[in-house]
Amino acid sequence: MKSTEEHLPLKPRIFEILLALLRGDDHGYAIIQELNRSSRTRILPGSFYRDLESIEAAEMIEEVDSPPGTAGRKRCFRITSFGRTVVRAEARRMEQLAQVGTELLQQSRGES
């Protein structure tokens, strides 16, 4: 049985990749473009594919056949159900963290 816990917390970049794949199957290059749109710095392809390969090895995503009309030999990926579980766990973790943070802030304001 694969453990969700051992992958948490997720690197922000990996979380973003998984989020991008939640919107639908896509190839790596398209994900980079997506991430570039939403982030301030440009993503370097080398580190991106390293991340992609590692989450594939962790079975959070899997390669699927490219849809017809894809140019070149671009690899298309789909998020696995395990991947969804990890994303859900990470989201829950962040939610909890945010909650703790908000409470702490309110407390500290009450003290000051």
């Binding site: 917390p9 690197k11 080398g46 390969e53 590692s54």
Partner: peptide
């Protein structure tokens, strides 16, 4: 970046499962 990740990928040899998860 390519040199860095490429060489590190080579050094790691086997896929991620044998080493501590790089996702951490």
């Amino acid at each position: 970046d390519a040199l860095n990740h490429g060489l590190r990928r080579r050094l790691r040899r086997a896929p991620a499962t044998t080493s501590p998860s790089p996702i951490l």
